[in-house]
Design a protein around this nucleic acid. Structure first.
Length: 679
RNA sequence: UGGUCCAUGGUGUAACUGGCAACACGUCUGAUUUUGGUUCAGAAGAGUCCAGGUUCGAGCCCUGGUGGACCAACCA
């Protein structure tokens, strides 16, 4: 068991409490229950890591159960992809299960329900049934077929099962409560007729159980102790329990469902339906497009299982709506790759550099560290010669004080090689730089131990020898959407926010020859650029690298004006994405802090209160006259608001006078002063 | 208009039966650095949606508001 110092999430608290109440640890059992109708994404990873993590923590089995009750949507392809992804994440399931394994048991239980008068066959259209269902605010009404005899129900259900009816013509429904405030309890559907081959049971069945009927019973069959799912299933819990009540044998373990919030990531979408839409509309190249938040997309992008597990761990589990910043995910992958990726050099946007005092035709082999973070990671060879490519952005004819790279008359080091000095440039008729002419210090070779080699220079550049470089394609990715939460806008479709520049293909990048032998599972850091790994599109003579994530770049940051977000909350406008909050409410929140403020902050806060006060009515304000004496800030805010109302012609009354009087008698100077103004 | 759930720095989570609000990401300094990376040292940023109550003491408990999410597929 974990140290008690470690903080637990609320699910773990529930389990600890169950254990404390006598639940046997050996009976703990979990499951991850995907529907095989799409690929797993980073949101699923949260659930996978939660369930399998619990399994590891408590040494309990975790089943992988495919919730395959709808042959119209599900396919073997998805089953395979899901298994691959979970295994890749490094988790081992105890048993591979399928809801379809329990179809016979489910059917038998359904017969039992019918015999007990708790289920009936309906034969209305879906429109009729929907109409009878009522709305969340008004009760439903019973189906005319609700009170069929047991015999008739049994007979019809038998015929449904035998395929004697058309798809959609008959249903089996549970008889619960058409007036329940919980819509799911208004005679939910148990079975529907679907004439489609199932990926596992083929054409054996033509009736298929609904999610609610299958899920809890599957948990029960597998003796899952804690059935964890996302919040939108909260309302299903009552039904989950009702179904269990009907079939539960008290000698067996009774599963319980608990719900947690799904994890959202900023600048992307996280629903299988929407991801499928991106695939089908060819906005991305497929489920495993490196821009997709799918596990397979992240894998192709170069993310590691560890980084995803770390992300899930550090993001946590709770019950509130959330949008986690992608920067957290990026932190997790950088942290991992920094320790493991082999350092290499590649030039993405080349400009030619000629070392004029380096002998023509000469080349030499230099040594380069594989990974400075890993003590025994060794070195690899990198060829050096007279003509090199460096990054175009790494040269400026005239540099400012803060530019540490190459400029005319200044020295920089070429990583793992020599110190060079830029002497002149050759340009075309449009002024574009064609060549940079440099001289090098022959004594300054890295690792030679000479005094010259240890000289401090302002910058270090990566480079590649033109004669030895290999060409490769490099694909750089940016966020797929321009909006932080693209699917949270009622008035706009998430596709409206697709980033048109999310993919940048560099057809000819120049890489050091060492990379010719790169393998698919190797991770690289292209020095000063970021982390890269091979894309499966690669051929042995045509490599394709994906950029996983860039290095943190404090230089780039200086060149972009980014709005500081570490400022104290501006009291002025609190509109944000919370929708319009009531003005008074905002005033209250600002007022509360008034006594902590001084100077400009105080003035700012007070003037925004005065502004907001324009929208406040006397009826709203007057209850706050009773605000406790010790809550001075709120009382000042109320006093300010009152002054605005009085200015607008609000008549004075006893209530108002009393409030002003109380302010006059107060010890707090600001409050007293504001009250004074109203006398 | 009903039911259910949620509300803690910019973001994500903590705070065990009430006890001076913690951690991570992000942001900003400075040092080190043959990656403007890493590492190291430090800083700013919330008084916990609002109000009332209980209490010596409330982010945690009670009451009433406010805001947000979910619920009416023969989907899961």
């Amino acid at each position: 068991m974990k140290e008690s110092t470690e903080s637990l999430n609320f699910i773990e608290h529930i389990i600890e409490e169950d254990l404390a109440n006598g639940f046997a640890k050996d009976n703990l059992r979990f499951r991850f229950p995907p529907e095989p109708n799409g690929y797993l994404h980073i949101g699923h990873a949260a659930s996978i890591c939660l369930n399998f993590g619990l399994g590891e923590k408590y040494n309990a089995p975790v089943n992988l159960r495919f919730d395959d009750t709808n042959p119209a949507k599900e396919e073997q392809e998805y089953v395979d992809a899901i298994k691959r992804d979970i295994a890749w994440l490094g988790f081992k399931w105890a048993k591979e299960c399928y809801s379809s394994d329990y179809f016979q048991q489910l059917y038998d239980w359904a017969i039992q329900l019918i015999k007990e008068g708790k289920a009936y066959v309906d034969q209305q259209s879906s429109e009729q049934i929907a109409a009878q269902k009522g709305t969340p605010t008004s009760p439903g009404s019973p189906s005319p077929y609700r009170d069929r005899s047991v015999e008739e129900n049994l007979d019809l259900f038998e015929k449904m099962k035998n395929g004697e009816f058309e798809a959609g013509s008959y249903l089996l429904r549970a008889k619960i409560d058409m007036a329940s405030p919980n819509m799911h309890m208004r005679d939910p559907i148990l079975y529907r007729i679907i004439n489609k081959a199932h990926h596992r049971t083929g054409t054996e069945w033509c009736i298929y159980p609904m999610y609610d009927w299958a899920h809890g019973q599957s948990d029960y069959v597998e003796q899952v102790s804690h059935s964890l799912c996302t919040l939108e299933f909260k309302a299903h819990r009552e039904l989950y329990d009702w179904y269990l009540d009907q079939i539960y044998d008290s000698k067996l373990l009774r599963p319980k469902q608990r719900e947690f919030a799904r994890r959202n990531l900023s600048f992307t979408v996280m629903s299988k339906r929407k991801l499928l839409e991106l695939v089908q509309k060819k906005i991305v190249a497929g489920w495993d497009d490196p821009r997709m938040p799918t596990i397979s997309g992240l894998r192709r992008r170069g993310y590691t299982p560890d980084s995803i597990r770390k992300f899930s761990d550090v993001a946590g589990i709770s019950k509130r709506d959330n949008v986690t910043e992608v920067s957290l995910l990026e932190f997790c992958i950088r942290e991992d790759l920094n320790k493991t990726a082999t350092r290499v050099m590649g030039v993405l946007n080349p400009v030619k550099l000629i070392i004029t005092n380096y002998p023509e035709g000469k080349s030499e082999i230099l040594e380069m560290e594989n990974n400075p973070e890993l003590p025994n990671s060794g070195t690899h060879e990198v060829p050096f010669s007279r003509e090199l490519y460096i990054e175009r952005e790494d040269f400026k004819e005239e540099a400012g004080k803060k530019f540490f790279r190459l400029s005319l008359g200044n020295e920089v080091r070429l990583k793992s090689a020599y110190i060079i000095k830029a002497e002149s440039v050759k340009k075309d008729e449009n002024g574009n730089i064609l060549e940079i002419h440099c001289t090098y210090d022959a004594d300054s070779r890295s690792g030679s131990g000479t005094e010259a080699s240890q000289r401090k220079v302002k910058g270090t550049l990566h480079w590649v020898s033109i004669a030895h470089a290999i060409k490769a394609e490099v694909r750089e990715y940016d966020r797929l959407f321009l909006d932080e939460a693209p699917d949270s806008h009622e008035d706009k479709n998430f596709l409206d926010f697709v980033n048109p520049d999310s993919l940048k293909i560099i057809k000819e990048a120049y890489l050091e020859p060492y990379l010719a032998n790169a393998s698919m599972d190797e991770k690289f850091q292209f020095q000063r650029l970021g982390y890269f790994s091979l894309d499966p599109d690669s051929k042995s003579d045509a490599l394709v690298f994906n950029k996983t994530v860039g290095l943190k770049d404090t230089w780039a940051k200086q060149n972009i004006e980014n709005p500081p977000q570490n400022q104290p909350k501006q009291p002025q406008t609190q509109t944000s994405n919370q929708g319009k909050r009531k003005a008074l409410n905002e005033i209250q929140q600002i007022s509360k802090k008034l006594t902590n403020f001084s100077g400009e902050k105080l003035n700012g806060a007070m003037s925004s209160i005065l502004e907001l006060a324009e929208e406040v009515s006397y009826e709203e304000l007057s209850p706050l006259f009773n605000t406790a004496a010790k809550k001075v800030g709120t009382r000042i805010g109320v006093m300010l608001t009152l002054s605005v109302l009085l200015n607008k012609g609000q008549e004075r009354n006893a209530e108002i006078d009393a409030f002003i009087q109380s302010g006059l008698e107060d010890e707090h100077e600001i409050l007293k002063a504001e009250a004074q103004k109203l006398v």
